[in-house]
Design a protein around this nucleic acid. Sequence first.
DNA 1: CCGAAGTATTGACTCAAGTCAACTGACTAC
DNA 2: GTAGTCAGTTGACTTGAGTCAATACTTCGG
Lengths: 240, 240
Amino acid sequence: MNPQLINVACSNCNLRELCMPMGLSDHDLNRLDDLVAVRRKIKRGATLFTNGEKFTSLYAIRTGFFKTCLATEDGRDQVTGFQMAGEIIGLDGIVNDQHSCDAVALEDAEVCVMPFDRIEEISREVTALQSHVHKIMSREIVREHGVMLLLGSMRAEERLAAFLLNLVQRLHARGFSQSELVLRMTREEIGSYLGLKLETVSRTFSKFVEDGTVEVKQRHVRILDTDGLQRLVNSNHHCQ
Amino acid sequence: MNPQLINVACSNCNLRELCMPMGLSDHDLNRLDDLVAVRRKIKRGATLFTNGEKFTSLYAIRTGFFKTCLATEDGRDQVTGFQMAGEIIGLDGIVNDQHSCDAVALEDAEVCVMPFDRIEEISREVTALQSHVHKIMSREIVREHGVMLLLGSMRAEERLAAFLLNLVQRLHARGFSQSELVLRMTREEIGSYLGLKLETVSRTFSKFVEDGTVEVKQRHVRILDTDGLQRLVNSNHHCQ
DNA sequence: CCGAAGTATTGACTCAAGTCAACTGACTAC
DNA sequence: GTAGTCAGTTGACTTGAGTCAATACTTCGG
């Protein structure tokens, strides 16, 4: 067997616990190996897909880091999410058969291309895949609820604290440190995601450093007081 | 045939153009009639489901009006959406087999209860249903992207304008007026959804009335200048 | 090594929205 | 009817985040 193909198979992928085929039997897992048509490499700064582009596939991130963002004609620009290895990207395109946001690689990346008609076909036969696809979409809906809560009711410090905790938690699930992380995005991109200006993000980082909650050296962040951040998120300063 | 049953069937439902069976052939439509287990009536102020409750079913709204909201222990409360006839509610529950928000009826309502295992079962056989379920979930994801844009980058007037336009547009698709609507929710609930305080919502309504853009009499709203509202949404006052 | 472009920090000032409070108008129950 | 509650409006004042601007640090190419 071609070693390239061994590598492409979901059944051999080291992300299989996080990614698409979670919890499948060996038999179903083999069936799933037809899912990934090809791999695709995306250079830092390049787009995986853009708003308006025809939707054909979902993408499983193998390596790298993406942002998805919504740009309107009048110059508004909202980052709607940051995605890392093992996460699925492109769900926005299903409803209208065209993507409704841009997916930009924030570092060199590689994705598994999963043609959506093939996903639908296989998930008619493999109920575990069907269920998994539904869960992935539902998870994205719930995640966005959380972002709405953040944007609708949190103060700048609370937003940034929630953001950092969410990032380390996801990185930790991938085997990285619970307390140290390297930000792949600019202050402006963080701000866009959190509904803040880049200056406010910068100031809030400085505030955290002053308080001894985190250490920040450019994009390297070390969390010194996880509980402190957590308390900030849960505290609800306005105590309504 | 029992007249009650005729009524319950999707194939006879007057919302079938908007709801679950949208775009299905007659043959598939009959298959779909097994989808709805029962109907359920919910009194104004009562919940259809609550955060933490076991997830079993999706609900198609037949009549009435709902809000979904996220409440945290620390007293934050975020309305994540308003739903009307023909819309599907409960998607948040799929990922963890339990609901992650509350669905509250804002007026007496009736829903079709669709057990999710039955949805999955039928959508394995009826590809049009499978596709439709995927589209419904994707649509919700895209809707939430829009809310994130609103919460992350719009000013109070822009938010309220976008909100009103979205409401009339959805009501119009259901045969109601393009310019007149009755709000089913309080100023506070609007504010929660839009990330504003109720006083700001009230003031912004007053501003619109002053400008001659809308007429407001309590919860009755008549839009006098749709284009004006649209321009407000698209203008992006800060012109970055 | 240097200059340029992009990114980040910090300060001074502004302003949109929040807060607090008073008051009014609707609706409900008795 | 009318007392009581809830919802909505409006005013005066405060404040957190935005804006504008100066400066510093990083990275990259020539």
